[in-house]
Design a protein around this nucleic acid. Structure first.
Lengths: 164, 164
DNA sequence: AGCATTAAGTTGCGAAACGCTACTTAAATC
DNA sequence: GATTTAAGTAGCGTTTCGCAACTTAATGCT
């Protein structure tokens, strides 16, 4: 690997937002708490008993996720002891990441197609595998992508299919 | 939340493969090492100097990723000091997860569309946002999915667009 | 009103993971 | 043969994790 390539890789790494994402979601339990929230858990004690996580760690993770704007903390109106944790839009935007990770685990770790499975609420058919797609919808595999400066990139056509 | 719902959630959690995926990829540095491998890093010293990770931790992560079949360790033929770490198919299968996480970070953490960007190698147009799609390609958002026993689910039609 | 219970944490402390620096080992190069 | 390179390993201090017990405030029970 020559120096020019190495240098461009270093720049690439510097401006990558993967570290930023991991700063928010990279600690132990963060994704499992998120999964819980997707599954309609919203109280401290629910998370604690469902996940079996230590209480101090749970408290720490919840405040962190709130600080990052992934969860929203709201005191319950009727019972002022209770506090509800709810996903924000930012939190919901992690759905593709979580589903992709789960699908990978199903395919390559547990091996089971798992029961229950996620289905489309409208027709109850199983959802697709999450994949990386080109602008016109072709699935992209390992050799099909490269890095380009945004100046070099072809102008992206308005996505015909809805964006996130 | 009544007991029936709670119970079904507990079963759901038990058979979810997210914990299995996190067991393989949930530790600090794992995703960054994976990103490095996607970017064609393959030697110990390359990972170390690009990521700035401590040597003992790197050694530990590499052997873990090899043990999980995500990376493959192969001694170099010409120079027997060198060892190459390469992604296996199982490792490449994490591409959607990684891209989804990076895109989320771009959109919600760093805010920058980042430079360089990932483009389709064929036409150099930016790739799409990774999203969860129904069997027929509709994007699915927060309320559009539910859990179903595989017996209950409608038979999935053969995916017209290629699977992973 | 007084006591028990519930919800959401906090505290203390031992165990495990992390990070830094220096050292080792084997192969290649000078 | 001496030096450099590649890939680790070892020692040790710091941080995070995990468990159990404790606290605080609101609610419910009689």
């Amino acid at each position: 690997m020559d120096d020019a390539v190495r240098q461009s890789l270093r720049e690439l790494v510097a401006s990558c937002s993967l570290p930023a994402a991991l700063e928010a979601m990279g600690e132990r339990w963060s994704f499992l708490i998120l999964r819980g929230a997707f599954n309609k858990l919203c109280h401290f004690e629910e998370f604690q008993s469902e996940l079996g996580i230590a209480r101090n760690i749970l408290a720490n993770r919840l405040t962190r996720l709130v600080d990052h704007g992934i969860l929203e903390r709201r005191p319950h109106a009727d019972d002022r002891r209770k506090i509800e944790y709810r996903l924000t839009d930012k939190g919901y935007a992690l759905l593709p990441t979580m589903v992709a990770l789960r699908q990978w685990g199903e395919r390559w770790e547990t091996g089971v197609p798992a029961n229950p499975i996620l289905v489309d609420a409208r027709d109850r058919k199983p959802i697709r595998q999450v994949q990386v797609l080109s602008h016109d919808g072709r699935p992209l595999g390992k050799g099909d992508m490269l890095w380009a400066l945004s100046e070099e990139a072809e102008a992206a056509p308005a996505n015909t299919e809805a964006a996130e």
